[in-house]
Amino acid sequence: TDVTFHVNGRNLHLKGADEELLRRIEELIRRGADIEELEKAVKEWEK
């Protein structure tokens, strides 16, 4: 799945995201995470 999140005026584009990653990103956004936290979560998922 390709999806782009718009967070605090910045874009986080995910290519090939699975349901697990999407749920994790949505949860972080609900908690008020900043873009750096979201990018870190994506990097951890990519490993």
Rank of each mutant, 00 (worst) to 15 (best):
T1I: 15
D2E: 09
V3H: 10
V3F: 12
H6C: 15
H6W: 08
V7P: 01
N8E: 04
N8D: 09
N8V: 01
N8K: 05
N8T: 02
G9P: 00
G9K: 01
G9V: 02
G9N: 05
G9W: 03
R10C: 15
R10H: 15
R10N: 15
R10F: 15
R10P: 03
N11C: 15
N11R: 09
N11I: 15
L12N: 00
L12Y: 11
H13K: 05
H13V: 15
H13P: 01
L14W: 01
L14D: 00
L14V: 14
L14I: 15
K15V: 13
K15E: 05
G16W: 06
A17R: 02
A17W: 06
E19D: 13
E19I: 12
E19W: 11
E20K: 14
E20Y: 12
L21K: 03
L21I: 14
L21W: 03
L21F: 08
L22V: 15
L22F: 04
L22S: 02
R23D: 06
R24Q: 13
R24D: 07
R24L: 14
R24G: 07
R24A: 10
R24H: 15
R24C: 09
I25L: 13
E26T: 12
E26N: 10
E26Q: 09
E27R: 09
E27D: 14
L28D: 02
L28P: 00
L28C: 03
L28N: 02
L28T: 01
I29R: 01
I29T: 02
I29M: 06
R31N: 13
R31T: 09
R31H: 14
G32K: 05
G32C: 06
A33G: 05
A33E: 08
A33I: 05
A33D: 04
A33M: 10
D34F: 08
D34S: 07
D34H: 08
D34C: 04
I35Y: 15
I35P: 01
I35K: 01
E36A: 08
E36L: 07
E36N: 10
E37A: 10
E37G: 07
E37R: 11
L38K: 00
L38F: 04
L38H: 00
L38S: 00
E39C: 05
K40Q: 13
K40D: 14
K40S: 12
K40E: 15
K40W: 11
K40T: 12
A41I: 14
A41C: 07
A41K: 07
V42N: 02
V42P: 00
V42K: 03
K43Y: 13
K43R: 12
K43T: 10
K43C: 09
E44P: 01
E44T: 08
W45G: 04
W45S: 07
W45M: 05
E46Y: 14
E46I: 10
E46P: 13
K47A: 10
K47G: 14
